[in-house]
Design a protein around this nucleic acid. Sequence first.
DNA 1: ATGGTTGCTTAGCAA
Length: 256
Amino acid sequence: MKLATWNVNSVRAREARLLRWLEAARPDVVCLQELKVTTEAFPFEVLRAAGYFAAVHGQRTYNGVAILSRVEPQDVERGFGDEGDDTQARLVSAQVGGLRVASAYVPNGAEVGSEKWSYKLEWLRRLRAWLDRRFAQTDPLALCGDFNVAPEARDVCDPAAWEGSVLTHPDARQALQDVRAWGLVDAFRLHHEEPGFFSWWDYRMLAFPKNKGLRIDHIDLSPSLAGRCSAAAIDRNERKGKQPSDHVPVVVELDV
DNA sequence: ATGGTTGCTTAGCAA
């Protein structure tokens, strides 16, 4: 199974590129983030024609997440289902082909110390609580998405320049580590040790041509799936050409 | 040098 995650930064603005990429990469399952569209206005028909079902948790203007799958997703769950804030569409999960897949759009956090920053850290705590509540470590689970955290210095183009940012702050890294301590493994790092692999480049300041990026999009696997992950890659080419997203797809191959 | 760019929505916010 080929499983991917991609923050498309508006599914409507990216529709042509998404369809072209699906045709070229032929993934079985794709987690999308930042749809920026309501569930009602999601392009179900065009994706169905391309061979994909969709489990969608949409929202107007901001956020919005989905799971595309060649087999029909079952048991779709939207949000955490906890007592916390439920106004931002940032999590959808579903059963696809024998495993549980989650598409997550972790809050960016805006600025360290801001209300949005607190919301980001709290959201990551809720994510860990959701894992504790909903799954056993033996379950085949893939948590995919824009985590808005570069886990280590090797995931940052210029660690000194990015020190203390919302994407690299020790508190954000610790919050992600607390999520992963449930029993998740960063699939990309199973296959690549070296620095210089990025999944996001700012639209501004010629960040992509200068390769000033960060690796903030991740596919995290439960132990049983980690042992079945035969390859991982970042599709850097998708940042090239006209009207790219600021993020590119991350792809893994699972022997399931 | 709190700059620069993109998307949604329509002037300002979010990233």
